[in-house]
Design a protein around this nucleic acid. Structure first.
Lengths: 118, 118
DNA sequence: CGGAATCCGCGCGGATACTG
DNA sequence: CAGTATCCGCGCGGATTCCG
């Protein structure tokens, strides 16, 4: 029946909304997705991220890094050099966001082409 | 040379960050992605969205819908019934976000499975 | 039904200065 | 270098009320 089909679609819609809401709870704020995208390319240090993630302030960066670590998306390792070195790296789990960031970025490029370009 | 390769990767990283930032400018806030995901399933009315997008308030919904429309992602059509009916629908352009919302939702489901489940 | 208007708290997020 | 601390404005976003 087509009524069942309709119902099924709506149910999937509801599930989708919930799933997205979950993600937005973890990746909230202006910067987390950018940070994850950056770390998906390679592990980086605090100062590297500060430069790469354009416009972010030191406060937000460290705060977001803490939250991302708390959610198991990245790891923080300290090297006892002089001065001390800290490296951030995606966990295996965090690396699975790679696909997400890629798709977003791809759409963003397309969008920019549409806006600025012609 | 591998140095060139490294350089290329970093350049791509920078581009990715910029692209993501563009997207976040359009899809900012807590709800826009959910709204778009919802409308990617089917066109809906204001009250439908209010129910489907769980937790959103009327104010945010109408504000976000306005912004999404301003960015060309959705259209708003008024039917002269009694009482009046308004339908929101993705533009062809907005529909291209389908892939994005799908990937995010997929990751979200996986995430929920990891958190609650085991 | 489909909003607009108003009130208001909270926390995001920027700027700056300081620390080990 | 890798942060922390503090101050503070702004706007997101909730709740409620009102309107055509």
């Amino acid at each position: 029946m087509e009524k069942d089909k309709e119902e099924l679609a709506l149910k999937k819609c509801t599930q989708t909304i919930m799933a997205i809401h979950d993600v937005m709870d973890i990746l909230n704020g202006k910067w987390k997705i950018s940070i994850m995208a950056c770390l998906c390319f390679k592990k980086m240090r605090y100062s590297d991220l500060l430069k790469k993630v354009n416009g972010i302030s030191g406060k937000m960066l460290s705060r977001d890094l803490k939250e991302l670590e708390a959610n198991g998306l990245i790891t923080r390792t300290i090297y006892d050099t002089q001065p001390i070195t800290v490296e951030y790296e995606t966990t295996k789990y965090g690396a699975s966001l790679n696909k997400v960031t890629e798709v977003i970025a791809a759409w963003g490029l397309e969008h920019r082409r549409k806006i600025t370009g012609k």
